[in-house]
């Protein structure tokens, strides 16, 4: 499964109350580095299917969540476990960096 788009309405059920760890990529249409990592996140979503959830959150459409999490730089990836943020990655980084952080979560 490719990374899923998360809306404010599903944030609590899909992210905060998720039984498995969730990584959320904060992104926007106008952000080139976000486009750079988008295919990587889709790949990771498939590779770790069932173990973690990979979500994408559009900062223009879900402004309040972006403000709530102090997002002022994108892409930012937040790593959630049992509703808590346990790790953060800022900026476009190679797949291996994201993967090793995911492995730390499991």
């Amino acid at each position: 499964m490719s990374a899923m788009q998360i809306k404010t309405a599903d944030f609590e059920s899909e992210v905060l109350k998720s039984e498995i760890p969730v990584i959320i990529d904060f992104w926007a249409e106008w952000c080139m580095p976000c486009k750079m990592i988008a295919p990587i996140l889709d790949e990771l979503s498939k590779e770790f299917e069932g173990k973690i959830k990979v979500g994408k959150l559009n900062v223009d459409q879900e402004r309040e969540l972006a403000i709530k999490y102090n997002i002022v730089s994108i892409p930012t990836i937040l790593f959630f476990k049992s509703g808590e943020i346990v790790d953060t990655l800022i900026g476009a980084v190679p797949k291996s960096n994201i993967k090793s952080k995911i492995e730390d979560l499991l």
Binding site: C31, M32, P33, N70, I71, V72, S73, T88, G91
Partner: peptide, 17 residues
Amino acid sequence: FTGRGVSYCGTCDGPFF
């Protein structure tokens, strides 16, 4: 503060400001 107000990319982060 990288990603918390420190940025190296205007086209990525400009709209937040």
